[in-house]
Design a protein around this nucleic acid. Structure first.
Length: 480
RNA sequence: CGGGGCGUAGCGCAGUCUGGUAGCGCGCUUCGUUCGGGUCGAAGAGGUCGUGGGUUCAAAUCCCGCCGCCCCGACCA
């Protein structure tokens, strides 16, 4: 098994990313600046992400619902920090039906406010709690600069919104959903994310605190891949949500929100891609196995296609997502490269020789070159392919984990921290600094605290910046 | 908004300095050839040269205005 991570080092990573998302047929340029056209192949990848998450949401008792795209401007203003955090990037409708609106409508940048407005009506008693709602939706944030999937003007996501009878329950929910995200990222997307808490400076506008999963991309930059917020009673108070508890006393519920977006598609591309293009983990790959028939003439063609049909049935019966590349006019070599660029985890080649020998050529995307290709018997192909996909899934997680760990370094002083983030990588340091200190470090190095990891040593050290005694480990890195 | 760059065929670009018939590569169409790692050849289709004005016998090219996009910074899932 190849353990070494393969990253696109022969090219500039940013350029590589921008080219590959178009070449791999994930998305297209939009006539509107910063908006993304998601093409069928990219959308199927997003649907795989959706499926993996939705299954987990249902398993934890959450239900889907849908709330309006437009939010009255006054709703956002009810929570002071919230509106302050979002106002610079709002798109606002001021004219509708040919007339100036009495009150402008904000195109949702996130839905806490409009959902809390409903929660106010839905919650009367402790018996109505916990209220566990999720919404799949599009939101709009007018960002200065955009990149396909990673930061777009409009993006698709899910946003969970829950209300609880106690602070402890809300905290448990916040943590539970972060764990759901991490479970998906690690086990489905094969991205070994680091779980942690955001600093005051980096937390969500209006939250008491924010948990995050941070992923390392192929160029060692960090990508915040999902967040879970404990909102305390901030929004409940702002929206006057009240319930009577068992003692017949009026209380404000404690709420949470958590979101994961189409950014995850970008994360998968950037965490696994190599010089040849995308590499998709089998669990989220729209096509897990592509079958390339090879023939020169009509006689070979009929024999090969007959075998393809037989194998196809076996693979479909095993619930393996396959695609047969029946295009004519393209050479087999062209097709191999084409599907490798699109990240299909495994490829099955079948030609006249295979028909004769009852074999197929089985190639795996996670291992480059000839070592990744072998001739195997057609007997029991479904089981063999299933095993291979399982192995690829595990290997890709392993490769990404080795890469991540090789690029996280301990720093004991500020110079070391600077050197690490300059060279590329994350610096793991003792931290007791202020938000202002974080600001200065960002100015000087471009790096921010990605998170305060849950995984803490439990001892004490000296803060990398202030030199004071510190009890907390922080991860610094440059981010997308 | 500050600094830099670019708008010419679906995509990527040359041509602009030095004005004179609109070009190249990829892709696309047709035919043939090839087909176990990005075949090769032939013939085609496709352009208001971002936009408005000016100079000139003549403007993609020179002059003035406007618009749009990209990159670097501040913001951010």
């Amino acid at each position: 098994m190849a353990q070494q991570a393969v990253t696109p080092q022969s090219v500039d990573f940013s350029k590589w990313y921008n080219e590959i998302v178009y070449k791999a047929d994930l998305c297209d340029l939009s006539p509107v600046r910063g908006c993304l056209i998601i093409k069928p192949y990219g959308y199927e990848l997003w649907e795989a992400v959706k499926g993996g998450l939705d299954r987990r949401f249902k398993a934890t008792g959450h239900q889907n619902a849908y709330f309006p795209l437009f939010i009255p401007e006054s709703f956002l203003k009810r929570e002071a920090e919230h509106v302050e955090g979002f106002s610079p990037e709002l798109a606002v409708v001021t004219i509708a039906g040919g007339e100036k609106l009495e009150e402008p409508l904000v195109v949702r940048p996130t839905s806490e406010t409009i959902i809390m407005d409903s929660f106010k009506n839905w919650i009367q008693s402790y018996r109505d709690l916990p209220l566990l709602i999720n919404q799949w939706a599009n939101v709009v944030r007018w960002e200065m600069r955009t990149r396909p999937f990673l930061r777009t003007t409009e993006f698709l996501w899910q946003e969970g919104h829950t209300a609880h009878a106690t602070a402890e329950e809300a905290e448990a929910e916040t943590m539970q959903m972060l764990n759901v995200y991490a479970d998906f990222a690690i086990n489905d997307a094969a991205i070994p994310v680091v779980k942690g808490r955001k600093t005051e400076r980096e937390k969500f506008a209006g939250a008491v605190h924010t948990y995050t999963i941070e992923a390392m991309m192929g160029d060692t930059k960090a990508l915040q891949s999902g967040t879970s917020h404990n909102l305390g009673q901030n929004f409940a108070k702002a929206f006057d949500i009240k319930f009577l508890d068992q003692n017949n006393e009026t209380q404000h519920p404690w709420t949470t929100s958590w979101g994961l977006s189409t950014r995850m598609v970008g994360a998968i591309v950037m965490a696994h891609g190599d010089d040849k293009g995308l590499r998709l983990p089998p669990k989220v790959a729209p096509i897990q196995v592509v079958i390339v028939p090879i023939f020169k003439n009509d006689d070979e063609r009929s024999k090969v296609l007959e075998a393809v049909e037989r194998l196809t049935k076996e693979l479909l019966a095993a619930n393996i997502r396959i695609h047969v590349d029946k295009r004519e006019g393209q050479s087999p070599g062209f097709k191999f490269n084409d599907w490798e660029m699109r990240g299909v985890p495994a490829r099955l080649e079948i030609g006249p020789k295979d028909v004769q020998n009852s074999t197929v050529a089985l190639a795996r995307r996670d291992v480059p070159g000839k070592e990744g290709k072998q001739f195997v018997s057609q007997d029991g192909i479904a089981a063999r392919v299933q095993d291979l996909l399982t192995e690829i899934q595990a290997n890709m997680l392993q490769q990404a984990t080795v890469f991540r760990d090789a690029n996280i370094h301990d720093a004991t002083n500020y110079d070391e921290l600077k050197a690490i983030v300059e060279k590329g990588g994350w610096a793991r340091v003792w931290w007791a600094g202020s938000g202002q200190d974080e600001g200065k470090i960002k100015e000087e190095t471009g790096a921010t605290i990605r998170c305060l990891p849950f995984d803490q040593p439990g001892s004490k050290g000296k803060c990398v910046y202030t030199g004071q005694s510190a009890e907390t480990i922080a991860l610094f890195g440059k981010a997308y």
